[in-house]
């Protein structure tokens, strides 16, 4: 975890911005009834330790932030970070089990965004956000890295599929193909396999030089500006290349 000072004003702004019809009603309405408890696998996996009960997790995080209007110590924020990032996956199962449909997961996600604004997020996530801004993908893969990887993978398939090439920056293709950044970084075979299928199917497609990472970890971090940047990169490049469709990796 990073170590910046806490900016209470930012927390306050975020809390105020979030307090719309949903958050206000949810926070007010929770009957503290316990219907949601058993729906959470964290609770089940910890032998029904009440600390993992969904409503309690919100009370300890977002609830506390609202109660104190963001005036919390660094230690308290760190405790909240451990709950919001570590004790809930924001899977939304409990939202379905609550009689009022109180959306615990959405509130935990909002808490994460607030924590992220204070530098309290898993390092990998913070790095990903930085990389999206700098490289357009979460794993800092450069344009050259990608084009070289594509050439390399085309060579690798030579024996099986002679004549296969992997189109890069081809204008007017029918489809722009996008991947998970880890395919370019760690699992290039996945690219080769997709290329073989496209080749066999006679697909007219291309990789773009930018906007090919279809993950959006910035969204998980609640960094909405960056999340929009990632989506926009993808659409802008599809338009630039004049394709009809955007393909998304499995």
């Amino acid at each position: 975890m990073a170590e910046p000072a806490i900016d209470t004003n930012v927390i306050k702004q975020r809390l105020a911005a979030l307090k719309g019809g949903r958050f206000k009603t949810w926070l007010q309405l929770c009957a503290h009834c316990g219907y949601c408890a058993d729906s959470c696998f964290f609770y089940q996996a910890h032998d029904k330790d009440p600390k993992y009960m969904p409503a309690y997790k919100v009370i300890q995080t977002l609830g506390k932030l609202y109660k104190t209007n963001g005036e919390v110590s660094k230690e308290e924020l760190e405790k909240m970070a451990s709950i919001a990032w570590g004790d809930c996956t924001a899977c939304r199962r409990c939202s379905m089990y609550c009689p009022f449909g109180i959306d615990i997961a959405v509130m935990i996600a909002a808490t994460r965004a607030i924590l992220c604004s204070q530098g309290l997020a898993p390092d990998a996530l913070m790095d990903a956000v930085k990389n999206y801004w700098e490289f357009g993908n979460q794993m800092a893969v450069t344009e050259e890295d990608l084009s070289e990887t594509l050439e390399w993978m085309a060579e690798e398939t030579e024996e099986e599929m002679p004549g296969l090439t992997i189109p890069f920056e081809k204008e007017g293709a029918d489809m722009m193909y996008t991947i998970n950044a880890r395919e370019a970084k760690y699992y290039p075979q996945d690219i080769a396999e997709a290329a073989m299928i496209f080749y066999a199917a006679g697909e007219n497609y291309t990789f773009p030089k930018m906007g090919w990472d279809d993950t959006n970890l910035a969204m998980f971090a609640g960094e909405m500006k960056c999340a929009a940047h990632v989506v926009k990169l993808c659409y802008d490049n599809a338009e630039r290349l004049g394709v009809n469709r955007i393909g998304v990796t499995e």
Partner: peptide
């Protein structure tokens, strides 16, 4: 019940 007790306040 522990899971209810932990979220219960005087208000409830």
């Amino acid at each position: 019940l522990p899971e209810v007790k932990i979220v219960t306040t005087a208000y409830d």
